[in-house]
Amino acid sequence: MLTLNDCIAFSDLLPEEIEEISRHERLGFVVALAKGHSLLDRPWGPPAIRQMMRDNLVRAMRRGDAASCAPTMEVYHRFQVRHPGGIDRRRTA
Rank of each mutant, 00 (worst) to 15 (best):
A70D: 11
D12T: 03
P43L: 08
P43Q: 08
P84T: 05
A48F: 11
P84Y: 13
L14Y: 06
R89D: 05
N5H: 13
Q51N: 11
M1I: 07
Q80Y: 12
I8H: 08
I18Q: 00
G64E: 09
R90P: 00
I18V: 12
H24C: 14
Q80W: 09
R89N: 04
G64Y: 10
V58I: 15
A93D: 13
D6E: 13
E16A: 15
D12L: 13
L4T: 14
F10C: 02
T72C: 14
A48N: 10
D65T: 07
S68G: 02
S11W: 04
A32G: 03
R90Q: 12
A67I: 05
R23W: 06
N5I: 10
K35C: 00
G28R: 04
D6Y: 03
M53R: 01
E17P: 04
P47V: 08
M53H: 00
R42P: 06
P71N: 07
R23T: 01
G85P: 00
G85S: 10
L39Y: 09
N56K: 11
V81A: 11
M1R: 09
R63W: 05
R26H: 08
M73D: 02
R50F: 12
V30L: 14
G64I: 08
R78T: 13
F79I: 13
R90V: 01
Y76I: 00
R54L: 14
R42T: 08
S11K: 04
R26K: 15
C7P: 04
R90L: 10
L4M: 14
D65W: 09
R26D: 10
R42V: 05
R50L: 07
C7A: 15
H77C: 10
E74G: 02
K35P: 05
V75G: 03
E74S: 12
E74R: 15
A60G: 01
L33N: 06
H77W: 14
M52G: 05
G45A: 02
R89E: 09
H77R: 15
P46Q: 08
